[in-house]
């Protein structure tokens, strides 16, 4: 099966209310903010968000009333600390949180991607994440008799991933640190790829070692330049640090968040209009060009 290349609004329209979505998988790198904002504009609700740490995107989706559950290790604003909409929603009980460590969420998705029911780990032992959880199982390793924690598989309905370039068929190149993109893509039933650039398939085939996602895993491909702003994308643009600080200053109450969202989410129709709001210079001024790689026969 090949993916469909389509517009962001058509691709996001495939995601139903109540879906579970793994996203923000490369941690602070290449976060699919454009797709997240489109979920808000389409009024999605009842989503369960899955991820390792979430640098702001989960906070924004919670602020926009799209979320009923979070399965993650950390949610907030890496520049400023607190994500106020996440904090308030968890304190009020409007969003249910399932606490993980980074490794436990990685292993849960890895188990999903491998088609096994769980994976064992030596992490979590002695932590209240384990003590207070109904999810994990502590047992004795049958081979060593040591205590071991079993992390059950997570299979999200969707993974949303932002990449540098993809072919129209859905094969994607990604470079820079990848966090838990691989296990999440493998575990998810559907994958939405947003790409800085949709390129000729020959570009992708010229460097198969750089392929992070193959077409059989992908439902939709969307060309979406600047689609990860304010997060950075290796080789494309820097992190917009000031955006994160401004967000922290402007979203400590619901009313303030709504005013912020009217400007940055609901007040723009698409990513081109959005890009016009960004005044700061984020382009790469000191590029590193990788040594040429040869394949051939």
């Amino acid at each position: 099966m090949s993916a469909r290349t389509e517009s962001l609004d058509d691709a996001v329209a495939r995601i139903d209310d109540g879906s579970s979505i793994a996203t923000g998988l490369a941690l602070e790198h290449a976060i699919p903010f454009a797709a997240g904002h489109e979920l808000l504009r389409q009024g999605r609700s009842g989503l369960t968000l899955i991820g390792p740490i979430s640098d702001l995107l989960f906070d924004q989706l919670i602020g926009g009333n799209a979320v009923s559950g979070v399965r993650a290790a950390w949610a907030g604003n890496v520049s400023a600390g607190t994500g106020y909409r996440f904090r308030k929603a968890v304190e009020d009980g409007t969003v249910e949180i399932e606490d993980h460590s980074n490794f436990s969420i990685a292993l849960a998705l890895q188990a999903g991607s491998m088609g096994v029911p769980y994976l064992p780990t030596k992490s979590l032992l002695g932590s209240d994440i384990l003590e207070h959880s109904d999810l994990f199982v502590t047992t004795t390793d049958p081979f060593t008799d040591e205590r071991i924690v079993l992390v059950p598989a997570i299979e999200p309905d969707w993974a949303i991933v932002h990449v540098q370039r993809a072919s129209p068929d859905g094969d994607a190149h990604f470079w820079g640190n990848s966090g838990i993109i691989d296990p999440a893509v493998g575990a998810a039933e559907n994958v939405l790829v947003t790409a800085e650039e949709v390129v000729d398939p020959e570009v992708i085939k010229s460097d198969p070692s750089r392929v992070a996602i193959t077409r059989d895993q992908v439902t939709s491909v969307v060309e979406c330049p600047f689609g990860a702003h304010p997060s950075p994308v290796a080789g494309r643009y820097n992190r917009d640090n000031e955006y994160f600080l401004e967000y922290a200053r402007r979203t400590d109450t619901r009313e303030a968040f709504e005013e912020w969202a009217d400007e940055w989410v609901y007040g723009v129709d698409d990513r081109e209009e959005y890009a016009a709001l960004v005044e700061r210079e984020l382009s790469i001024t000191d590029p590193t060009v990788a040594a040429e790689v040869e394949y051939g026969q």
Binding site: A73, W74, V90, F103, K122, S123
Partner: peptide, 18 residues
Amino acid sequence: DRDIRLTGSGGACDIACM
């Protein structure tokens, strides 16, 4: 009388354990 929710573990629990 208020419980305040913080950001969570991230990788901290894994580092502390291992």
